[in-house]
Amino acid sequence: MSEVPLPTVTPLTEPYWAGLTEGELRHQVCGACSNVWLPAREECPRCLSEDVAWQASSGRGRLISWVVYHQASHPAFADRVPYNVAVVELDEGARLITNVLGPLEELAIERPVVLQIEQEAGFSVPRFRLL
């Protein structure tokens, strides 16, 4: 069995992963223009300010789109097919790649979802369940 490829924690992304360990999903917010985004950046991609802070998200969002893998591109996922990967937009505006927990036949765009932090080889990762 091959191991699931785990994220590489860097000084830039450490607050994100630490937040998940502490039970919250954080996004970045710009102190100058209030723009909100993920994943972690050094500057605001809208106004280019370096005044960037981390903030806890409500964990609520909606499903933008999803796919279902029927063949695994990595051996660690071979026994998970068919599995979904989804794009979720948080209520605050940031978007992220994730998995949605729940029956595939119930997935639909714009469906409300809520954060459910799960463990992946000791890593806390953000997944979502249908509301």
């Binding site: 490829p5 893998y69 591109s73 990595h74 990967v85 790649i97 765009i109 992946e120 990762v125």
Partner: peptide
């Protein structure tokens, strides 16, 4: 290849990204 840190979700390969757009 896997898409950076998102590979932990099983997010791999070029076809899946186009599939994400196609679904929408």
């Amino acid at each position: 290849r896997g898409w950076g840190d998102d590979a932990v979700f099983g997010w791999f390969g070029t076809p899946a990204s186009y599939a994400m757009i196609a679904r929408r």
